[in-house]
Computed example of a mutant assay.
Amino acid sequence: MKVVVIGGTGLIGSKVVAGLGEHGHEAVAAAPDTGVNTLTGEGLAEVLKDASVVVDVSNSPSFEDEAVMEFFRTSTTNLLKAEAEAGVTHHVALSVVGTERLQASGYFRAKQVQEDLIKGAGIPCSIVHATQFFEFVKGIADSATEGGTVRLAPAKIQPIASDDVAAAVGRTAVDARVGGVVEVAGPEAFRLDDLIREALAAENDPRTVITDPEALYWGAALQETTLLPGPDAQLAGKRFADWLAQRKLALRPASSRRDRGDAAT
């Protein structure tokens, strides 16, 4: 089966390509640096030739309201048109848990437009809603930083490792059951402010996290459960503390790992 992965050289896309390849599928990474540009349409017809499935895990390079809307509207429209012409039989998109509850945010309004375009295109489709990635925790902190403080609401969040997101996207892409929304989340819930405190402490980041129920999340107000998945979500296995430990080990100089006996001999 040929699967074209739009955004296939990024954090999630590269993992999806690798995972599908390990399971015997022809997985093709499509991105501007491989000659495929969904905003202009460049390379789409060529890369989609003989493709059965398209997986879209691309993301806007800008989170500014107008720019992100333009990205998702234009790229999704171009991609769906090219898929219809190529005879693609399954479109899979990665989106975010809580998108429909975060419409005060320009980013999530754009993601909703993307989902609506996909559902209305007439191509069999599946949408994977993931909670925020462990790898994106610093981005959340940066977005909420004013000076030396980070203001965050005490809403609950259930983050997930990017490896687990990629695995879920890959499973969905080749699953015989096509259609609907699949939710995936990490195994444990945190308060958002506590999660960021833990993450910053692990990085020896001196910023102070202030709990503020009125603090906005990418421009949207949060209720306690806004960011949580539903009861039928698929739960991944990797815990945040384990991911932090692995990250610290990976960033440690190789000589230090050998001295501690952490490296393979």
Results as ranks from 00 to 15, higher is better:
residue 47 V to P: 02
residue 44 L to T: 08
residue 69 M to F: 15
residue 39 L to Q: 13
residue 75 S to F: 00
residue 68 V to Y: 09
residue 66 E to G: 14
residue 21 G to K: 14
residue 48 L to S: 01
residue 46 E to H: 00
residue 76 T to Q: 10
residue 54 V to T: 12
residue 42 E to K: 13
residue 41 G to K: 03
residue 35 G to W: 04
residue 41 G to S: 01
residue 45 A to D: 15
residue 24 G to E: 10
residue 24 G to W: 12
residue 30 A to W: 09
residue 48 L to K: 03
residue 71 F to P: 01
residue 54 V to F: 13
residue 63 F to Y: 14
residue 70 E to D: 14
residue 67 A to N: 11
residue 58 S to E: 01
residue 35 G to E: 03
residue 40 T to Q: 09
residue 47 V to A: 04
residue 45 A to Y: 02
residue 37 N to R: 12
residue 42 E to L: 10
residue 48 L to C: 06
residue 48 L to P: 06
residue 59 N to D: 08
residue 20 L to P: 13
residue 63 F to N: 05
residue 59 N to A: 14
residue 62 S to I: 09
residue 27 A to M: 04
residue 63 F to D: 03
residue 30 A to P: 11
residue 48 L to D: 02
residue 31 A to M: 05
residue 72 F to S: 10
residue 20 L to H: 14
residue 57 V to L: 08
residue 52 S to F: 06
residue 41 G to T: 08
residue 69 M to C: 14
residue 27 A to Y: 01
residue 23 H to E: 15
residue 47 V to W: 01
residue 33 D to G: 01
residue 23 H to P: 00
residue 41 G to L: 03
residue 59 N to H: 13
residue 42 E to F: 02
residue 55 V to I: 10
residue 65 D to I: 09
residue 26 E to S: 14
residue 31 A to C: 05
residue 73 R to I: 12
residue 76 T to V: 11
residue 30 A to R: 06
residue 30 A to H: 08
residue 35 G to N: 07
residue 36 V to T: 15
residue 32 P to H: 07
residue 38 T to L: 13
residue 52 S to C: 07
residue 54 V to P: 13
residue 51 A to N: 04
residue 46 E to P: 00
residue 69 M to E: 15
residue 24 G to I: 12
residue 29 A to E: 07
residue 37 N to W: 06
residue 34 T to M: 07
residue 25 H to T: 09
residue 46 E to Q: 11
residue 30 A to K: 11
residue 64 E to D: 13
residue 61 P to E: 02
residue 50 D to M: 03
residue 66 E to W: 04
residue 70 E to L: 13
residue 33 D to K: 07
residue 32 P to C: 06
residue 49 K to G: 09
residue 29 A to Q: 05
residue 76 T to Y: 02
residue 31 A to K: 04
residue 53 V to E: 05
residue 24 G to C: 11
residue 33 D to F: 00
residue 35 G to S: 04
residue 47 V to H: 02
residue 73 R to K: 15
residue 68 V to N: 07
residue 72 F to W: 09
residue 35 G to P: 09
residue 51 A to Q: 02
residue 61 P to W: 06
residue 35 G to H: 02
residue 75 S to A: 13
residue 22 E to K: 10
residue 36 V to D: 06
residue 52 S to E: 15
residue 41 G to A: 04
residue 23 H to V: 11
residue 23 H to I: 04
residue 35 G to Q: 06
residue 67 A to T: 06
residue 69 M to G: 15
residue 23 H to W: 10
residue 54 V to H: 11
residue 34 T to S: 12
residue 74 T to L: 12
residue 70 E to G: 13
residue 48 L to H: 01
residue 70 E to W: 10
residue 62 S to D: 14
residue 45 A to R: 14
residue 23 H to M: 08
residue 71 F to N: 00
residue 51 A to F: 03
residue 43 G to D: 06
residue 54 V to I: 11
residue 34 T to N: 08
residue 24 G to N: 12
residue 34 T to D: 06
residue 63 F to E: 02
residue 38 T to M: 13
residue 51 A to K: 02
residue 67 A to Y: 01
residue 25 H to W: 13
residue 24 G to A: 08
residue 72 F to V: 10
residue 34 T to P: 07
residue 25 H to S: 11
